[in-house]
Design a binder for these strands. Structure first.
Length: 429
DNA sequence: TCTGGGGTCCTAGGACCC
DNA sequence: TCTGGGGTCCTAGGACCC
């Protein structure tokens, strides 16, 4: 096995059971007890405390399957409260940034820290210090893994949480420790290898990351594309995945929701689509982009056997790239009418804005109508007022009043750290 | 009764052009 | 029966991530 230099330079730090830990900060009596956080509409379990995991509650379990436990108080359940989690995340990231200027916020609950060029004699001690500081100031327990590549830092982090729970820090910094870490890691737990590849690899007799690294490059390239090859290099200690400190602008923006009940009501779906489009256009303007395409999609309930599953979508190439909610809603509604079939009841609907381009580099096409300056000013005003007086103070008429398609949230905790209308911006991919 | 949401990258294959 | 070669662009689909 080829192992190059293995001085750790990357750390992966993440909050343990992040959403659950956020809830516990505001109700410490939940420490040591089974706690879960539910998805939108209180549908499935998306976060579990260790005690909930120990009860055998799997990720993605439908909430109704543990309804008895929730009602009897054996398990405490929270509806997801992203305003709270986003705010706690920002605070945690700021602490990480005290230790190195090079931080990549990778998701709401984890960040890569780059210590290249810094003199660190005691990696484990550094990890412990970071951990203590986050615990003291934010109240969230974190796990930290150090390694010479991002993929190995991920593996070290997993070991810190699974096998060294008390310490919460693991350092992979010698060829021997890398080898041992790879042997301890099931191949499906390697960053970039999902269920499908894991099954394929299983058929080759590959069970651990150590087995994977022994596969010939040609086989990996053929079956797992260049991505697979990159994973192998990273596992061997050769950094090929760079730290991304600057969050690149999104290439697509999607807004979609599952309805509480299946519905064939076009007016209702129309309202929902208009609302999703307005939301997506806000995100679009927030990142300073224009969209060239809008896709509308409808899905029937795939768990219902009384009707066949249908997934419909229609994409409109807009006459010109725009960020105007008015223009986007207009085309979204046209697209909806192209796919809507009253013979079916729909469980989910959404829109996708794609082929996004930066506002400043928007190409002026001679054949495109010039952008309507009145829209621009109107949108700026709407965004400003909604930021100031609360989301949806100003809405388009088609967004309607019923709001019946909004989320079911039976167990949401208060927005402890933010005003009701403040949605913190989460800097994450 | 009840099953989330929002992203990225890579490749193959078709359309089209010279 | 034979029916070029090479390039680019676009899209759909499949894999992955949290």
């Amino acid at each position: 096995m080829l192992l190059k230099k293995c001085k750790p330079v990357f750390a992966l730090a993440d909050g343990n059971n992040f959403y659950v830990s956020c809830e516990r900060v505001f109700d410490p009596s939940l420490e040591g007890k089974p706690v879960v956080v539910l998805s939108n509409n209180d549908g499935i379990i998306i976060a579990r405390s260790q005690e909930a995991k120990d009860l055998g509650i799997a990720m993605g379990t439908p909430a109704f399957r543990i309804k008895d436990w929730i009602e009897s108080g054996k398990v405490t359940a929270f509806s997801s409260n992203y305003a709270l989690y986003g705010d706690m995340s920002n605070r945690m990231m700021r602490i990480f940034a005290d230790f190195t200027p090079a931080v990549e916020v990778y998701s709401i609950d984890e960040a890569f820290l780059d210590f290249r060029g810094m003199e660190v004699r005691d990696w484990k001690g550094l990890g412990k210090t970071i951990r203590q500081r986050v615990r003291r100031y934010i109240g969230i327990p974190v796990g930290i893994g150090f390694g010479p590549t991002k993929t190995l830092a991920k593996i070290a982090n997993r070991i810190a949480k699974k096998l060294m729970r008390e310490v919460g820090v693991a350092v992979v910094d010698t060829p021997g420790k890398i080898r041992r870490a790879l042997e301890l890691t099931p191949v499906e737990d390697v960053w970039g290898i999902g269920r499908r590849y894991a099954r394929l690899l299983e058929n080759q007799g590959v069970r651990t990351a150590a087995d994977f690294v022994r596969l010939p490059d040609g086989w990996i390239r053929r079956h797992m594309t260049v991505q697979g090859l990159r994973i192998k290099r990273e596992l061997q200690g050769e950094p090929v995945i760079a730290l991304e400190e600057v969050v690149p602008p999104r290439k697509a923006i999607r807004t979609a929701r599952t309805f509480v009940e299946d519905t064939a009501d076009l007016d209702f779906i129309d309202e929902a689509i208009a609302h999703f489009t307005v939301r997506a256009s806000q995100k679009l303007r927030a990142q300073g982009s224009f969209a060239r395409y809008i896709t509308v999609f409808l899905k029937t309930n795939r768990f219902r056997s009384s009707q066949p599953y249908r997934s419909l979508h229609y994409t409109v190439r807009l006459p010109y790239a725009t960020d105007s909610a008015i223009v986007l809603v207009h085309y979204a509604r046209l697209a909806l009418r192209r796919i809507y079939d009253p013979a079916y009841a729909y469980k989910k609907a959404g829109i996708l804005l794609s082929d996004l381009q930066d506002r400043s580099v928007r190409q002026l096409n001679l054949f495109e109508p010039p952008e309507d300056d009145r829209h621009r000013r109107l949108m700026e005003t709407v965004d400003r007022l909604n930021r100031r007086y609360g989301a949806d103070t100003l809405r388009l008429g088609v967004q309607g009043q019923s709001r019946a398609w909004q989320l079911k949230q039976m167990h949401r905790s208060p927005r402890y750290t933010t005003r009701w209308d403040e949605i913190p911006v989460i800097y994450a991919r």
